[in-house]
Write a protein that binds this DNA or RNA. Structure first.
Lengths: 246, 246
DNA sequence: CTAATTGTTTCACATGATGAAACTAAGTTA
DNA sequence: TAACTTAGTTTCATCATGTGAAACAATTAG
């Protein structure tokens, strides 16, 4: 991996790189971590010893794979509310709602589900939407497509493998490739009759997917034509959100 | 602080110690971190440079204090559900409910509120309880007293300072000292008429408070007498929970 | 205005981090 | 069953890195 940045501590940089391997995977072996980080196995072993001793990673007793430890949860509890992405991104979501006049939602993937972590309601629509915190499946909706299409390859393979009995794998992969190409996904009446949605990925500064930004509304306002018209604005807004997250 | 453990990487140990300063504080200056960790300011400065470069801490632009960065949230999202403390501790909560026959709850502190992160309902009571995820104030209830009494001194001072217009500070401090002495807190009809509660602290392996375990029920079953009788069992159960968390 | 405090930079030096090599254990294949 | 492969662990010579003391700059307090 990259050599030490000026002014940083190389061993610490490396240990944090190991932790960051767990942003989209829950279980990893030592050799897998060495491959992901480009570090020697003996180096990874020692750095993991430090992370494990302080509770940042733990060793699963049955699989012997490494996973994130309790301290990550403990620290996350103490993230102040002002730093919560759901709070940081709210003004930009409100700005987008004011421009487009539709309901704006933000979703993250959690295993084989997505969670609605923030929402700004359309001013004129009074239809029901899933409450914040709701867990929804990943096989319907524009944001589900985004959370799969822009996920790492391992996650995509796992989801596709889970669904192999229900989908045309080849057609699904083509659909995901098309979404990556245009940079957004659409859905029409997939989760709810009469409702369409457009969704774009939110990436962090390391170009990793962190959330899906979604605009939804009734079919008479979100036609295929103006979904395409809105896509550029939604992608641009998602990019602005990515820049707001450190 | 302590010298390197056998087989760990000293610089990484130190950087993680810096991160762990944020388990009960949201904002810290460089000198404060140096004091908490016993490290030289120039050492802390360099280690923070690594943590900041990778997004684990960030510098507040107005106060210039350090705070936890976005990556902590991002990693916590990927903690697998099996590692979520609310999941890990559920069997022990069920065991306690089966013994005592009352409603068991687990609370964590978040700023000036507490959050109910897990609950096991009494088998015979059908009274309403706050749903999981509910935010409740910290100035009522046995678990509130525990979350204050066993918090670090800074947190206690901050809460007391917030409430100084509404409480007898001296009496409150005496009450907190008494709770620390016996190891548990009680409340009678503080949040809800006809309901009493007993609460004990859950500490992690570093003896830091992570949650409050609470048993609640109607006054006719939770008299002062049998709250005292139950306290020992509740404390013992909270200790078992602390050992379950890595 | 002066003193104190916090944060930042520099650099000589000691030691800690590294990876190559070897080893152990477990799983896979023929 | 034996041989091979893979993953994880240990050892150690080497040198690059991490450290803290000192000095400096900026800000705050009296």
């Amino acid at each position: 991996m990259e050599e030490s940045k000026s002014g940083t501590v190389r061993a610490v940089d490396r240990a944090l790189d190991i932790l960051l391997c767990f942003t989209d995977t829950t279980d990893l072996g030592l050799t897998e971590i060495a491959e992901k980080t480009g570090l020697h196995k003996s180096t990874v072993f020692r750095l993991l010893a430090s992370l494990e001793a302080k509770g940042f990673v733990t060793r699963d007793s049955s699989t012997e794979k490494y996973k994130l430890g309790f301290r990550i949860w403990e620290l996350s509890v103490n993230l102040s509310q002002g730093d919560d992405p759901a709070t940081i991104l709210l003004p930009e979501m409100e700005r987008l709602r004011d421009i487009l006049g539709e309901t704006i939602s933000l979703y993250i993937r959690d295993g084989s589900e997505r969670i609605r972590i923030q929402a700004v309601q359309s001013k004129h629509s009074i239809r029901r939407v899933a409450p914040i915190g709701a867990r929804l499946p990943l096989y319907v909706g524009a944001s589900s497509k985004v959370l799969i299409a822009f996920a790492d390859m391992n996650t995509q393979e796992n989801m596709i493998n889970d669904w192999k009995e229900f989908i045309d794998i080849s057609a699904y992969k083509d659909q995901m490739a098309g979404i990556r190409k245009v940079g957004y996904a659409t859905s029409v009446e997939e989760r709810e009759p009469g409702v369409a949605a457009v969704s774009a990925p939110v990436f962090n500064r390391s170009h990793q997917l962190v959330a899906a930004l979604s605009v939804s509304g009734p079919l008479n306002r979100l036609t295929l034509e103006n979904m395409k018209d809105h896509a550029g604005l939604i992608i641009e807004s998602a990019n602005r959100m990515g820049n707001m997250l450190r």
